[in-house]
Structures are given as structure tokens and as C-alpha cells.
């Protein structure tokens, strides 16, 4: 039966950290290509938090954030979500559209589709790294976007984690371009059965 995050051992956490590292490294490369700029990335932090602490992830449950959600099919099923603060989303859009970094964004149609494209590329390259690493076939859907309070957006992956245990696992990644820093959080949420498939493919589950 399913794997509980609360019971993950250090080796498994290390493996997940490595997935996060490779996944978001790939995502940073993809981002650099898209922006045609050098994008650096800090070592991603794998975090396991209790639900009560989850709302502090992005500086408070009421902070407005952009959430990009893709469903995942293939050898595993589930979803992947990328969350960034509105301000950081604005910076990414402005870089992509060649505008001054501090220009206010209104989330109009063009900006929303630019963000979806960013989500597509980040999540797509993240998943392709995971696919290569595990030899599993992993296919993302087109992204759905929502802009709202951090707590409300995070409730979507949190509820899925809630079926497994009492904590949420996510990967915090900091991208920087020049002196501009953007922090993003990846939530990879495999379905209960897929979690085991994933750990088995990585050789860290019985």
C-alpha cells in the first residue's frame, strides 16, 4: 500500500532532493534558453512540512501568488504544481517580454499566456528529468493557472498529500538572473500508487 511521507527515511529524502536538483536544474536551463539569459540556480531545498506550517511557505497564507497546475499521466499519474509570488511572476513575464523588470503586470491575456508558457517549460523540463532518471513515461498536460491567496492555491496539492499523511513535500528553488532573484516552489504530487512506482523505479523502495 501507499507510502507515507511521515515515514520516509533519509535515503528516500535524499533521492527526492536529487530529483528536485536535477528537475529544477533542467528547468533553469530551459528558462535560460527561453529568456536568452544566463540563469543561475541555488541548490533546491526539499522541504517536508506539517499542514499547520504550510501556509508560511511563501510568507503567509494571504500573500497573492500564481499557481500553475499540470496533470501528469503515463506510467505514473498525479499532478505537478509550480507556485511563485505575484511579484516574482511579474519579473519573469517582464524578462520574457523584454520590458523593464519593475513594470506592473495586470495579468491580462498575453501575460497569463506568457506565464502558462513559463509553467509549461519549467514543469515540462522538470518532468523530463524525472522521466530520464526513472525510465518511466511521464506526460504533462497543458497548464491551468490561478492567481489567489497562497493558502488557497496550496490547498490543492495539500489535499492530495492529505490522503497519504500529515505533511506536504515540496521543492523550493531559487532562480537568479543578474541581481534579480525569483523563488519558486515545485509540488510533485503523485497519486498514492504512483508514489511507490516512482520510488521503486529509483531503487529506494522494497
Amino acid at each position: 500500500m501507499g507510502v507515507y511521507f511521515d515515514e520516509l527515511d533519509n535515503l528516500q529524502i535524499d533521492v527526492l532532493r536529487e530529483i528536485g536538483n536535477i528537475g529544477s536544474g533542467n528547468a533553469a536551463t530551459a528558462l535560460a534558453k527561453m529568456l536568452n539569459k544566463k540563469v543561475n540556480m541555488d541548490v533546491p531545498q526539499v522541504k517536508v512540512l506539517q499542514f499547520q506550517e504550510v501556509s508560511d511557505i511563501l510568507g503567509g497564507a494571504e500573500i497573492p501568488v500564481v499557481g500553475l497546475l499540470l496533470s501528469v499521466t503515463g506510467d505514473i499519474s498525479g499532478s505537478i504544481m509550480f507556485i511563485i509570488e505575484n511579484e516574482a511572476a511579474g519579473i519573469l513575464v517582464n524578462i520574457l517580454m523584454g520590458r523593464p523588470l519593475d513594470e506592473a503586470i495586470t495579468f491580462d491575456e498575453i501575460e497569463v499566456s506568457a506565464l502558462k508558457e513559463i509553467g509549461n517549460i519549467l514543469a515540462g523540463s522538470y518532468l523530463s528529468a524525472l522521466s530520464t532518471l526513472t525510465n518511466l513515461n511521464i506526460l504533462p498536460s497543458v497548464p491551468e493557472l490561478a492567481i489567489d491567496m497562497a493558502g488557497a492555491i496550496i490547498s490543492v496539492p495539500a489535499i492530495e498529500f492529505g490522503k497519504l499523511g500529515d505533511s506536504v513535500l515540496f521543492i523550493e528553488t531559487e532562480f537568479s538572473e543578474g541581481s534579480t532573484k525569483v523563488v519558486g516552489n515545485f509540488f510533485l504530487v503523485p497519486d498514492i500508487d504512483s508514489y511507490e512506482v516512482l520510488l521503486k523505479a529509483l531503487g529506494v523502495a522494497d
Binding site: A150, G151, I153, I154, S155, I159
Partner: peptide, 23 residues
């Protein structure tokens, strides 16, 4: 009151929960 949390209190009190989504 956090996510997956509950609290009860005597008067006077304000009980609050932030950023309810699908919960």
C-alpha cells in the same frame, strides 16, 4: 486555526483561518 486544525474558545475571541481554498 491552521490547515487540518480546529480550535474552540470562550467569549471574547476571534477565531480565524487564512487562505481557505478547496478546504
Amino acid at each position: 486555526v491552521g490547515m487540518a486544525d480546529l480550535k474552540a474558545s470562550y467569549h471574547p475571541a476571534i477565531l480565524t483561518t487564512l487562505g481557505l481554498g478547496s478546504c
